[in-house]
Structure formats: structure tokens, C-alpha cells
Design a protein around this nucleic acid. Structure first.
Lengths: 220, 220
DNA sequence: CTGTATGTTAAAAAATTGTTAACTTTTAAT
DNA sequence: ATTAAAAGTTAACAATTTTTTAACATACAG
């Protein structure tokens, strides 16, 4: 794994190089934005650690330039910021950063963040919504759209439908449904049926199918 | 751009004033921490350059006091340190500094760092407001406009609304809200409800939606 | 047909949120 | 430093919605 570290302060470059090299990463360094761009183009690192604060071309600007280079499309960018800013305010994210660490840098924390980032990039980023035919269900927004119309579902109804939709066409037994949607509370079988009915009332009968003697499945 | 320079040595004050004035900044000076606080409160400078080593109230202490003043929330602080300290040990960052420069001061370096800092704060400012339909909320100005009219929100109300608006349509759980708006103080669920109610009183019911069993979301 | 599984309904029970007012803390002004 | 005003928090309870159950109806496989 190649990591490019960009900072105008030699102390920090050495400090980070030392700590990351110890972890077995291949380290490149640059002390300003334009050098960083050159090295990045040549080496195509997996991760670039960028100091936000640099004279001339600062981290944000460098980040934006990097994001314009197609070859560096899957390169991760981690920012070093001086003071902890609120996540949602951090300008770096809009410039295309993937994570940030605040100074003063604790080597252990940095290393775990670097590893987490690289691990995460291996697996695809999970989408928060599932879209099947005329139905779109979004867990983050807790929103169900049916033919573009918002459908109001209570929490259990929502969770149940979402669960069925996670694996379309698979039949879920009531047992599976209870242990996944209700977790550790016990409910009778009829309870599930009632919820299914309420969902059907709201989105129509065609989506949820009953497999007699087995359970329910979401299917189109 | 207003810059407040704080140092107990007159020579340095003059030296820095001269160099920064030449760059077109509006300069204020103070020779000790308590004077600095008074001037800072009155002038609300964009940047404060603080000498770490001062008799009585030192730079670190002054910095902490400044950080407690809400009006100076977006004021940047740059430290002057006498000798290069081990980077990871620099106490200034934990006190809320944004950057530091080591003595002896090279005017060119200082100016480029000052410019980099101010540029950063500008780009932060550029994305400090969110506008959705008839609502415009500006974090820096702590200002909410509803149909072009100013709406007075208390601080917590403001922060809560701003937080919800950062990701429109996403449902935030009370847990998320508490850890982001209240940070590390514990409050009961009812407290959030009360704040939500007060916001609704001021901007109407249509914007903040309750997702029963989940949380609240901002949606149009 | 018959027995079992599922559908349906309404009502009870439980959970969640809304609201008010009292109280505490913070902030700003003197 | 004192004090008044504003902001923030909480408890108590009301209102609302969700969830569950029980009872009974219906469907369907064999």
C-alpha cells in the first residue's frame, strides 16, 4: 500500500513517515501541493494524507486538483486539520476528502483511521436505499416511495418491509422475521400477519407474497 | 481583514505591525492577555496572533479564554513559539490554536501562513449557509431567514435546526441529535422535543417532521 | 370435507411524542 | 460583582400513534 504524505513542516513529515513505515506502508512525501500532484500522478498512491494548512497551494486546493485527475479516482484522501471542526462544516469533504484527523496527531489513532479507510475502500460503499420496480425504500430517510408518492409506514411496518426487500424473492420464515425485525421481544405469529396486512393496505397486494407453511417474501 | 497582535515585546509588535500593515491588513495590538481580550471582544478580529510566552496571562491561557467567547467563534488564532517544540507535544493546539509559527519570525513565511489561514476561513464561510425553500440558515452570522424575514432562534434551537438541515430528509435519531448538538452533556429526550416545539412555533410546522419511533427530520 | 395456516377486525395495551409550567443555568448589562 | 432577563432543562401529564392480541373468518392442501 502506497501512502503519500503532504505537509510543509519537515517535523510532521518525518513524524508521520516514521510511524506509518513501521506499519509496513510504502511512504512518499511532498512538502507542497504542486510536488504532491507530481508524485501522485507518478506513483498513484492508495492514500494521500494532506495537511489542510500549507502556504501557496493549501490542502483544499490540492485536494480539488487531485480529484480532477482520473487516474487518482480511487485514491483516498485524508486531511490533517489543526483544530477540530464540526464534521458537517469541514470544507474538506466538499473538496473530496474521505476522512480527517485533527492535530495534534496521535500515531495510534492515525494508523487505525488509515487502516479503516483502506479497508472500507476495499468493500463497496453500501447504499442506504433499495429500489425495486415502483418501490424505493430509503433507510436513512425512513422514506418509502410508491410510484413516486410518499407512503407513510409505522416503524415496525417499515423495518419489516425493508427486511423483506433486502433479499428480494427470498422467503423469510416468521422465525427469521421475528429474530431480525423484533430482535429480542417475543410476539405471536398473528402479529406479523397484521403488520403484513397493513403494509399491503398501503402499497397493494402484489409485492408481498405468502408462501403457505413457510413464510413471506417480497417479489415483483 | 482585522488582525490583533499580542506580544509583550514592543519590538516584535512593531515589526509585525509594519509587515502586516504593508499587506493591507487592519492591525490592532495588545501587550498582554487581558488587554487582548478587551480589544478582541470589541473589534472581533479575523485573526489573532498570540505570543505563547508572556508574563502574567500567557498565550495558552489567553487562547483558552478567547475560545470561550462565542462572538470570537470564527476568529483564527496563530501562535508564536519561541523555540521549535516537539510537534506532537505542542500545547497550543489543544487550547484551540489554528496554526503556529516559530521564532525567529521570517516575515515572508508569516505572511504566507496568515494568508493561508484566512483563505481557509473564507472557503469555510462560503459554505456556511444552507438554503432550502423559504428558509436560509447561516451558521457564521447566526441568522435564520424565513421568507426573507429574520427569525430569532436561541442558540440551541439554532444549532438543532442547522444540524437537521445539514442533511435534508435524513431522519436523525435523538441519540444522533444529542451527540452532535449537545456534544458531551446528557439531556433527556423531552428536552429535544421542547426545542423542536419552539422551533416549530417560530417557523411553522411544515419543515420539521416527526418520524415516530425513529426521530426527526427536516424536509420540505 | 376437514384441519391447519393465514387473513381480518376491533379493541386493549404499550410506546412515543406534545405541551405546559416550574425550575436552573447562562448571559448580558449595569 | 450584582442583578435582571433570556435560555435551557426537566417533570408531569395529556394526546396521539403504534403495536399487540384475541376472536373469528376465510382459504387451501390433501
Amino acid at each position: 500500500m502506497k501512502i503519500l504524505i503532504v505537509d510543509d513542516e519537515k517535523d510532521i513529515l518525518e513524524f508521520l513517515s516514521y510511524n506509518l513505515q513501521k506499519e509496513g506502508f510504502e511512504i512518499f512525501t511532498a512538502s507542497n501541493g504542486s510536488t504532491a500532484l507530481k508524485i501522485a500522478k507518478k506513483e498513484v498512491p492508495n492514500l494521500i494524507i494532506l495537511d489542510v494548512m500549507m502556504p501557496e497551494m493549501d490542502g483544499i486546493e490540492t485536494c480539488e486538483k487531485i480529484r480532477e485527475i482520473e487516474a487518482l479516482d480511487s485514491t483516498l484522501i485524508l486531511f490533517l486539520t489543526a483544530r477540530s471542526e464540526e464534521y458537517s462544516e469541514l470544507a474538506g469533504f466538499s473538496a473530496g476528502a474521505d476522512d480527517y484527523v485533527t492535530k495534534p496527531i496521535k500515531p495510534k489513532l492515525l494508523i487505525s483511521r488509515v487502516n479503516a479507510l483502506l479497508r472500507r475502500s476495499q468493500s463497496k460503499k453500501a447504499q442506504s436505499f433499495i429500489e425495486i420496480e415502483e418501490l424505493k425504500i430509503d433507510k436513512d430517510k425512513h422514506l418509502l416511495l410508491h410510484k413516486g408518492q410518499v407512503v407513510d409506514l409505522a416503524r415496525k411496518e417499515f423495518n419489516l418491509l425493508y427486511y423483506l426487500m433486502t433479499v428480494p424473492a427470498k422467503v423469510f420464515t416468521r422465525e427469521e422475521i421475528i429474530s431480525n425485525v423484533w430482535k429480542d421481544t417475543f410476539v405471536g405469529d398473528r402479529t406479523i400477519d397484521v403488520h403484513i396486512r397493513k403494509i399491503r393496505e398501503k402499497i397493494g397486494d402484489k409485492y408481498i407474497k405468502t408462501i403457505k407453511g413457510v413464510g413471506y417474501k417480497f417479489d415483483v
